[in-house]
Deep mutational scan, measured.
Amino acid sequence: SNREKAKQAFKELLRDKAVPSNASWEQAMKMVVTDPRYSALPKLSEKKQAFNAYKAQRE
């Protein structure tokens, strides 16, 4: 689905920018907000969900 693709793109973005798994949401956003993939997930709640999944995978 498109939403799954968007989630993957967002997680790839976090990986590409080397966002550490112990980063806070605010720290992570400063690192990725300028990338076009930041807008892949329109809802903030979805971004946070993908971010938390990313962190869980990295730990």
Results as ranks from 00 to 15, higher is better:
S21V: 14
R3Q: 12
D16W: 02
W25M: 10
R37I: 09
P20H: 01
T34C: 10
A53C: 10
K43V: 04
A50I: 10
L44G: 06
A56N: 10
L44A: 11
K5P: 05
K43N: 11
S45M: 05
V19P: 04
K11G: 10
Q57R: 08
S21H: 13
L14N: 06
K43Q: 12
K43C: 14
Y38N: 04
S24Q: 05
Q49K: 12
A53E: 15
E46K: 00
V32P: 05
E12C: 02
Q8V: 10
K17W: 04
S1R: 12
A23S: 07
E26H: 09
V33A: 15
N52S: 12
E59V: 14
F10M: 05
Q57G: 12
A23L: 06
S21D: 12
R3A: 05
A40M: 15
S1F: 15
A6E: 15
S21L: 15
N52R: 12
K17I: 01
E12G: 04
M29I: 09
P42M: 10
S1V: 15
E46R: 00
K55E: 07
K43W: 06
T34L: 06
L41S: 03
Q49C: 09
M31E: 11
R15T: 11
E26Q: 05
N2A: 05
S1Q: 03
E26N: 06
K5D: 13
P20V: 02
L14M: 02
T34Y: 09
N52K: 14
K7T: 14
E12I: 03
K30D: 05
L14Y: 00
A18E: 13
L14H: 03
Q27N: 10
E4D: 13
K7E: 15
A6R: 06
A50V: 15
A9E: 13
P36N: 05
D35T: 01
L14Q: 07
K48I: 12
A53T: 11
A6P: 06
K30I: 01
Q49H: 05
Q27F: 00
E26S: 09
K55Y: 02
V33C: 15
A50F: 04
A40W: 02
K7S: 13
M31I: 10
E4W: 02
E4Y: 04
R3V: 11
K55G: 06
E59G: 09
K5L: 10
Y54N: 04
K47W: 01
K11L: 15
Q27G: 06
A6C: 00
L44H: 01
D16E: 15
L44R: 06
R3E: 12
A23V: 09
T34N: 15
S21Y: 13
D35R: 00
P42F: 01
D16S: 04
L44Q: 09
K5H: 09
P42E: 14
W25H: 06
Y38E: 05
K43Y: 01
R37A: 09
M31Q: 08
Q27M: 07
A40C: 11
A50L: 12
K7P: 02
N2M: 05
N22P: 01
K30E: 14
A50R: 00
A40I: 03
T34W: 03
K17M: 13
M29F: 07
A50E: 09
E59M: 15
V32D: 06
E59K: 14
F10E: 12
P36M: 02
K7R: 10
Q8N: 02
Y54C: 10
R15Y: 12
P36L: 02
A23F: 06
S1E: 09
S1N: 13
A56E: 14
K30G: 09
Q49P: 03
K11R: 13
